[in-house]
Simulated scan of single mutants.
Amino acid sequence: MDIISLIAENKIREAIEKGELKNLPGQGKPLELEDLSHVPEDLRAGYKMLKNAGVLPEEMEIKKEIISLQKLMDCCYEEEKKNIIKKQLNEKILRFNLLMEKRAVSSPALSFYKDKIFDKFAGKD
């Protein structure tokens, strides 16, 4: 065990003895572990912090806005307002597609698997 682990263990033991760890939220309940296998390993800590802070990743925020605009457009009966909403919706969809395209290009893993999938469909196993 390295020195940092020993220091951490001692601090935890001291806190337990002082009763500082009693009545914590979730005490006695099993931990809820999330499946983050779909998130690249180097981004997991960032995604977890954003989620705990109640912040959505940009692509999810845009997707949420797209859904809201679609619902709004479905409820709108005035043609002028519907056209305004449709323009906003198209802008959001374009922004979402550009963002996803940019991410796909910057992800070597995605490019690798994309090529493998295309080869599979093309019969180049």
Rank of each mutant, 00 (worst) to 15 (best):
M1V: 11
D2H: 07
L6R: 10
E9I: 06
E9G: 05
E9A: 10
N10E: 15
K11T: 12
R13S: 15
R13K: 15
E17D: 13
K18H: 10
G19W: 04
E20L: 15
K22I: 11
L24N: 03
L24S: 02
P25A: 01
G26P: 03
Q27R: 06
K29P: 01
E32R: 12
L33P: 06
L33I: 12
L36H: 01
H38N: 10
P40G: 02
E41V: 10
D42T: 08
L43R: 02
R44P: 04
R44I: 03
A45C: 10
A45Q: 13
G46N: 12
M49G: 08
N52C: 09
N52D: 13
A53K: 05
V55W: 04
L56S: 06
M60S: 11
I62W: 00
K63V: 01
K63H: 02
K63P: 05
I67E: 13
S68G: 08
K71G: 15
D74Q: 10
Y77W: 11
E79L: 06
K82S: 07
K82H: 04
I85T: 01
I85L: 07
Q88F: 02
L89A: 00
N90P: 07
E91W: 01
I93C: 03
I93G: 01
F96N: 04
L98G: 11
E101T: 09
A104R: 06
A104K: 05
A104W: 03
S106G: 12
S106E: 15
P108E: 09
A109Q: 15
L110W: 12
F112L: 13
F112N: 15
Y113M: 08
Y113G: 04
K114G: 12
D115Y: 06
I117C: 09
I117P: 04
I117M: 14
D119M: 12
K120I: 15
K120R: 15
F121V: 11
A122D: 14
A122P: 09
A122S: 15
G123N: 05
K124T: 07
D125F: 13
D125E: 15
D125R: 14
